[in-house]
């Protein structure tokens, strides 16, 4: 999972496409909505990839991180604070704090217990937001404006918002790629592959894993802020455990070999979902079996497709 230019080619191509999209005719409202959704999910999936692929921690509660970030936007909006430079750091810090608190307990366990505990913490956050009657409870909360940038309404502009999302996505990808290539990432992978051996050479995995969990949570919180601003609406449904399942699917769909897999997986997911939803209202009847088939046959994810199709190529 060290950094190579070859594994960077795909993300750079995707970023270039995203940057060019508004000028290639994809400039209607729903285009921007779909692209923003893809970019938010890509950020969330990349942060989850740090846990699943990097540290071997399968979290089924990652949607809660996005939820915490999104609800900080709501709480601040209700209090009349809409300046991005105040709200964003607060949201990221809140998500990181939530990750620290829940991670400190969850990482004590491993394997199936970890999956279930993260699921349980996710549900806890879901029910907590459902009972926030002040912020709409189950029905959610409508944001009438996006965050302000130095007191201006710049983010209301489609182009500005699109490129802000893109910049944050590139930043996320670069950060996670750098982390995984660093010594920190190597320790995570060593502990994932063989915990006993990692301990034997003097690395206690716990603090590394917790740090990864907190960083993933912080990025998830940032994705939540963007999500809230993209949809201008926040509801407890954002924290539903099915959302966490979707995120996990994006990561696996793309492939666990690096952050570029999660990036590809997220966009593939959004496109397939969009396409199937247009086909029939019961699109999940197709989507569910599709997911199962992916698990059965697409073991290395989409990024391994060239090798699968074109024979094995050692690289």
């Amino acid at each position: 999972m060290g950094f190579t230019w070859r594994s960077a080619a795909l993300p750079l191509a995707i970023f270039a496409l995203l940057a060019a999209a508004p000028f290639l005719g994809f400039s209607q409202g729903w285009h921007f909505t779909m692209l923003a959704r893809g970019m938010v999910y890509a950020m969330a999936a990349i942060s989850l990839m740090l846990l699943v692929g990097g540290a071997g921690l399968v979290s089924l509660g990652h949607a809660a991180m996005l939820g915490v970030g999104a609800y900080v936007v709501v709480v601040m909006d209700h209090a009349g604070v809409v300046e991005a430079w105040k709200v964003v750091p607060l949201a990221v810090a809140a998500a990181a704090a939530f990750a620290l608190l829940t991670g400190a307990i969850a990482i004590r366990t491993s394997g199936v217990h970890f999956i279930m505990i993260t699921l349980a913490f996710g549900q806890m956050a879901f029910f907590a937001t459902s009972s926030l009657a002040l912020y709409g409870g189950d029905d959610g909360y409508t944001l009438y404006n996006r965050l302000e940038l130095f007191g201006t309404r710049a983010l209301e502009g489609r182009m500005v918002f699109h490129f802000t999302c893109l910049a944050l996505l590139v930043l996320t990808w670069a950060l996670v790629t750098a982390l995984l290539a660093s010594r920190f990432g190597r320790v995570l992978r060593a502990a994932r592959d063989n915990e006993t051996r990692a301990r034997a050479v003097g690395f206690e995995p716990y603090p590394y894993r917790l740090a990864a969990y907190v960083i993933a949570g912080a990025i998830g919180g940032l994705a939540g802020v963007v999500l809230a601003n993209a949809t201008e609406f926040v509801a407890p449904a954002y924290l539903a455990w099915q959302r966490s399942g979707d995120l996990l699917f994006m990561v696996i769909l793309g492939g666990l070999a690096g952050p570029h897999g999660a990036l590809l997986g997220a966009f593939a997911y959004v496109l397939v979902e969009e396409w199937l939803a247009k086909l029939t209202e019961h699109w999940r009847l197709i989507f569910g079996p599709l997911l199962i088939l992916c698990v059965f046959f697409l073991r290395g994810g989409l990024i391994s497709l060239p090798q699968l199709l074109g024979g094995r190529r050692d690289g």
Partner: peptide, 9 residues
Amino acid sequence: VLATFGVIL
């Protein structure tokens, strides 16, 4: 987890 999630959907 993923495949049985697909069954749920």
